[in-house]
Design a protein around this nucleic acid. Structure first.
Lengths: 234, 234
DNA sequence: CGGGATGTTGATGGCAGTCAAGCTCGGTGG
DNA sequence: CCACCGAGCTTGACTGCCATCAACATCCCG
């Protein structure tokens, strides 16, 4: 067991992931059922509607959680970063599709064994509860955005979220963000079209709020105050 | 303690609420910190931004969970029925407002004491985890609706949800629904305006999918198949 | 250097929001 | 008993935002 848990103790998301809520014994149990796997950009981890066979922790990379309508319109209902939990314990079928947006490393657990470990490790279950409640809170904020805010507010708010994720404490006024996702994914995340996202970004450029070097995925936030004024946050 | 838990054993939501996951000892602990309270229609249980002082189970009635933008636009991010859990354990400030839509009975627990009971009752915490995951799943489905579906699809889907809630097994073709909320709340729930909701309902009436006696809150679903065709469910 | 994926820009149209008027119904008080 | 009133709902006219369709630019990879 000592060797098994050592690989967890070295893990880069040891403290930020669920495992932060696990004591040494719990970690050993988790470690015994987990295995590492790398997903290439675009690869799918789980499909909506398929049997729900696995849970995982994100060790590195970015993934999207998507739901789709019958006629093929897609909504990104969540983004996952290093330290986030993936999966739907206690349900038999997946309701969402999880896809890697960039090359990603995961620590994967067979779902039923993961549930059994949870049942014996209250600390872990507690950590998962807190994570799930935070995700719910996040989902509620996004419902507000999708239901009530205009395109400009959605974009500005999204950029502010990226800034805060990139530099949690940094009140620096000019910040370079490496936007982790394509325009298309931004659109699916915000409930807009690619064209509207593009237009709003050039509009922000015109206002001096951002700069868009080379038209790529790097965004330079030049005036946070403008974004905040436009975002209309609650 | 026997007397304390007896009042719980008689509770009408004993099996459908969180308490279904509690053994006799846990129930006694819960019962010791809980007290009943009735809210009139329109009364607010918790305000977004206020100190987060309580959690509760819904014993009877209907409540809405709302978030609002800085300029006052409101989005209903959840509806609560008998058996549902209310509250945000482990966070210091409420992020949402909870308001009774009809006269409602709640079983209220001071938040910190509730958390302490949770810590000693893994069965309860497990039940809360499952409830929260179900709520998250629900929230994801609603993000799909708010981000991708048109007004007609939203209305049709909402009516189908009401039908399924009212008669879970009943495949009867003509169903009377007592819509529990006003047009305004329907609009806030679906991310639409009152006028659009009204127009879409009369449109459905024109198609023969529903009947709207007296323009009130009763809706007669006359042709479920039409609604399903319009809802475009995933 | 070519070709496909990704992003930008433009023209147009439709769906839902806004503003406004009228209707229905339940309640209240003269 | 009826007149009045106000809240909630419906309907209409108009506007505006964003989706759609389309063409073009740019970047990346071979």
């Amino acid at each position: 067991m000592a060797t098994a848990s050592n690989q967890c103790l070295d893990c880069s998301v040891r403290d930020t992931s669920l495992c932060g809520g696990a004591d040494t014994d719990d970690l050993a149990a988790l470690s015994a059922i987990g295995r590492r796997r790398t997903l290439g950009a675009g690869q799918v981890l789980t499909w909506a509607g398929d049997a729900n066979l696995l849970c995982a922790n994100v060790v590195a990379g970015i993934l999207k959680v998507t739901a789709a309508t019958a006629n093929g319109r897609e909504q990104i209902v969540g983004l996952l970063f290093a330290g986030d939990f993936v999966g739907q314990p206690f349900t038999d079928d997946s309701t969402v599709t999880v896809t890697a947006l960039s090359e990603s490393d995961l620590c994967i657990y067979p779902r039923e064994r993961f549930e059994r470990v949870l049942g014996k490790a209250p600390g872990l279950e507690h950590a998962l509860l807190r994570w799930t409640m935070a995700a719910l809170d996040n989902a509620r904020e996004r419902m507000l955005t999708l239901g009530q805010r205009g395109a400009q507010e959605r974009i500005a708010g999204f950029l502010l979220d990226l800034v805060d994720r990139a530099s949690p404490g940094g009140p620096s006024n000019v910040i370079s963000i490496d936007v982790p996702i394509s325009r298309g994914d931004m659109a699916d995340f915000l409930g807009l079209t690619i064209e509207t996202v593009s237009r709003q970004l050039t509009r922000l450029k015109g206002m001096g709020a951002v700069a868009l070097p080379r038209g790529g995925r790097t965004i330079l936030v030049q005036d946070r105050a403008i974004l905040e004024a436009l975002a209309n946050l609650g």
